[in-house]
């Protein structure tokens, strides 16, 4: 895709935005995180006015299908998917590497300075970038095949 094709949105997003707008957009993100806290506080606050409060010891017991709780609260548990968790970390980091590559494989990228002026346009990666990423994916896929052959991709 050429830069001219996406010019309407470039003016709306990256190119027309100064650095303080960029930081400000993340202030909105923080506010929306706090909105959750506000909503929980508000609804539980309203609830505390109308809901009853009649404490009895039985109500505060841990629920174990009706019988008295047995043993420790936090028993030792075997987390059977821990090998998957290790593999997950590797592939998740891989995903972080692929994302920036994916945005530039076939598209031009405009670099903007702090006041929003485009000072350089980077061309698409094309076949050179493609081959490099294919090698990267191949190595990772090899890792997955190795784990598969070593029979760690099964429930233990």
């Amino acid at each position: 895709m050429l830069l001219t094709d996406i010019s309407p949105l470039l003016s709306a997003t990256t190119a027309g935005e100064s650095y303080s707008d960029f930081v400000r957009s993340y202030l909105t993100v923080a506010i929306f995180g706090l909105l959750a806290l506000g909503m929980v506080a508000l609804l539980l606050g309203v609830g505390s006015i109308i809901r009853p409060n009649r404490p009895q010891p039985g109500k505060y017991l841990t629920y174990e299908s009706g019988v008295d709780p047995v043993g420790e609260a936090w028993p030792q548990t075997q987390v059977r998917y821990y090998i998957f968790a290790l593999l997950f970390v590797i592939f998740d980091v891989e995903a972080v590497f692929i994302f920036p590559w994916a945005t530039r494989l076939d598209s031009e990228t405009a670099l903007v300075d702090s006041s929003g002026n485009v000072f350089e346009i980077l061309g698409p990666y094309g076949s050179y970038g493609l081959v490099k990423m294919l090698l990267f994916i191949a190595v990772l896929a090899l890792g997955l095949v190795y784990a598969w052959r070593k029979k760690v991709l099964r429930w233990m």
């Binding site: 959750a36 609830g47 809901r51 009853p52 109500k59 017991l61 841990t62």
Partner: peptide, 28 residues
């Protein structure tokens, strides 16, 4: 909204209360 608010005695109270906030924050 009218149901009694019950937190079990053995629960970790702070984390127990924070968990729904984290889930809602993720949604928002």
């Amino acid at each position: 909204l009218q149901k009694e608010d019950i937190i079990p005695d053995r629960a970790d109270r702070f984390v127990f209360k924070a968990a729904p906030v984290v889930v809602l924050a993720s949604t928002f």
